[in-house]
């Protein structure tokens, strides 16, 4: 029997995601893919494989998982969730080995919104239109185009192998409460006062959110667009902050509609998209306007950090500060990994 991961219990929104389907917006298909692309890169580094391999995205809450047909290498990234391996606490942003008789339990996110479960070799669910990403609205990707549920068995690709028991430092994006923006395509539909207010006030992330978009609650009045739009739809982009008729902004995310008719006051810079999606429900945050130059510098810095992630990786046992409960670790993995690290 080839290796698989069994979903013993599923949280409300577990989906298989990879890098999505770029290049198809002309057909009305947005790229989709993992909400937090940085977490995908972290998982790839922890397991020593390509960032394009598919993982499970867990919105707010995880589930229970078991390895079938052999041990699996696992990495946990993104929003820090409460994880237990055979009843023992497991630190986040780590890699571990899941033996066939062991149970991996992943609970609620402590901070952040989207956690990721990666496996060595990636999930080998069927590709549809060039990707394994689940797009719920059009029922494609993942398993039968739907969220995962109890009893699902996810096939796992061939794992080239490698050490486990490694840890990466927690990314700065999780807990970031200042999101940088550029003015949106229709910012001039709003008065100067409204634009200034957009930058000055705080917003609460609401729980009315999914992979398509997130409702933001302004601290104060709803927003009002000055000039009426013609209502002819136009293309929207990832990170657009759209203001619908009720004046309560919506951040447009991975599975957004490709076109929309409401004015967009601002667009989140590429380097802060992962920080935006990781803002937990009810958390308060604000927007800061930057120039294009700063947006590009931030993106350059983020790409560099991702390229240098492997240098940040440490064996778990070598950094006790990262260990919530020393006794809970799979010490054998860690020790072996540490020696490999020293001699390589």
């Amino acid at each position: 029997m080839s290796a698989a991961l069994e979903v013993v219990a599923a949280g409300p929104s577990l989906t298989v995601q990879d890098a999505g389907r770029p290049g198809l917006q002309r057909y009305g298909i947005t790229q989709g893919g993992a909400m937090d692309a940085v977490a995908m890169a972290e998982g790839a580094v922890l397991l020593g494989q390509e960032p394009t391999l598919a993982a499970i995205e867990m919105a707010g809450f995880g589930g229970k998982f078991r390895a079938c047909g052999g041990p699996l290498r696992i990495a946990l990234t993104g929003a820090a969730m409460r994880a237990r391996l055979d009843g023992q606490d497991q630190p986040w942003n780590t890699s571990l080995t899941l033996e066939p008789d062991a149970l991996l339990e992943i609970g609620a996110a402590d901070d952040g919104a989207y956690g990721y479960l990666h496996v060595g070799g990636g999930f080998a669910t069927p590709e549809q239109i060039g990707s394994r990403s689940t797009h719920l609205r059009s029922a494609i990707g993942g398993l039968e185009g739907r969220a995962l549920r109890e009893g699902d068995q996810l096939p796992v690709g061939e794992d080239r192998g490698g050490r486990t028991g490694m840890v990466l430092p927690r990314g700065k994006r999780i807990g970031q409460r200042e999101i940088r923006v550029l003015w949106g395509v229709q910012a001039d539909a709003f008065s100067q006062d409204e634009r200034e207010r957009f930058l000055a006030i705080d917003f609460d992330m609401t729980t009315r959110r999914d992979r398509q978009g997130a409702r933001l609650k302004p601290q104060g009045e709803p927003f009002h667009a000055e000039s009426a739009l013609t209502g002819v739809s136009d293309a929207v982009v990832l990170g657009d902050i759209q203001v619908p008729g009720d004046g309560l902004p919506v951040a447009l995310l991975a599975d957004r509609q490709p076109t929309g008719g409401y004015p967009r006051i601002a667009t989140v810079i590429s380097a802060d998209l992962a920080a935006l999606v990781q803002i937990p429900g009810h958390a308060r945050f604000g927007f800061r306007l930057v120039e294009e130059e700063e947006a590009l510098a931030a993106l350059r810095a983020q790409r560099r950090e991702i390229a240098e992630l492997s240098r940040q990786m440490r064996a778990l046992v070598r950094d006790p500060r990262d260990m919530g409960n020393l006794l809970a670790f799979n010490l054998v993995d860690g020790v072996i990994s540490a020696r490999e690290e020293e001699t390589s």
Partner: peptide, 11 residues
Amino acid sequence: FMLGFAPGVAY
């Protein structure tokens, strides 16, 4: 006029 709103939706 356009494919948009969702995959394959035609205006």
